[in-house]
């Protein structure tokens, strides 16, 4: 319980669909069993189609998201182009490994589409930057076990945007309902070639 990863609670999941990807997170911020806020999104956008989900210690979530805001802005100014999801993933990895012996207590998830090909890309990391390239889904946060169970049974290949939205929403909602440290509503992003849809889910408020 005193693990830095589970003090504040929170959950995040990303999924691959047909020519689209989805990423979703819950909105709870807590201090152990006490809920402090029900509006603490854990997904951040770093380009037209590059998204980062961060679960773990809330102060590190805020710090790390700002750090990448800075790094991506510098990249864009220096290179006069938007950062690609794979490049961003490698940036996340190297930035986390830089803190190998004093890590940020976060479990990041990257989701996006390759600008040139429109190919879906998702990956997850441990807190020191080891990348988990997955073809199907990535989960992180205090509800990982529940999310793994949901995703493993609900996900299937080549889901369209609407089906993918339904799948990721049901996976997240039902998973966080069985985790006391996550929940209180959700944000869901569906990322398509030239469209990003953001939906807010109410969910159980307990």
């Amino acid at each position: 319980m005193s693990s830095p990863f589970s003090i504040n609670g929170g959950a995040c999941v990303a999924m691959v669909g047909k020519d689209c990807v989805a990423i979703a997170c819950d909105l709870r911020l807590g201090l152990q069993a006490l809920t402090v806020s029900n509006n603490f999104p854990k997904i951040f956008q770093y380009g037209d189609n590059v998204f980062l989900g961060l679960t773990g210690l809330a102060t590190d979530v805020a710090t790390v998201s700002d750090l990448f805001r800075y790094k991506v802005n510098m990249y864009r100014l220096r290179e006069e182009r938007h950062i690609a999801p794979t490049t961003f993933a490698n940036l996340v990895s190297s930035s986390l490994y830089e803190r190998r012996f004093g890590p940020y207590f976060v479990s990041p998830v990257v989701a996006g589409l390759e600008a040139k090909t429109g190919k879906p890309f998702i990956c997850g990391f441990d807190s020191i930057g080891c990348i988990d390239f997955a073809k199907d889904f990535i989960v992180s946060g205090t509800a990982t076990e529940q999310l793994f169970g949901m995703c493993e049974s609900l996900w299937e290949p080549d889901l369209g945007p609407d089906e993918l939205f339904e799948t990721i929403s049901q996976a997240l909602l039902n998973a966080v309902d069985r985790d006391a440290l996550s929940g209180w509503g959700a944000h869901v992003y569906i990322i398509e070639k030239d469209k990003v849809t953001k939906r807010l889910l109410k969910g159980r408020q307990d």
Binding site: E145, Q146, G149, S153
Partner: peptide
């Protein structure tokens, strides 16, 4: 061991939770 993986799936598919 896998109760936490299976239980939310059951909530959803047997008791139609969140549907």
């Amino acid at each position: 061991a896998a109760a936490s993986l299976i239980m939310p799936f059951l909530d959803n598919q047997v008791n139609f939770k969140n549907q």
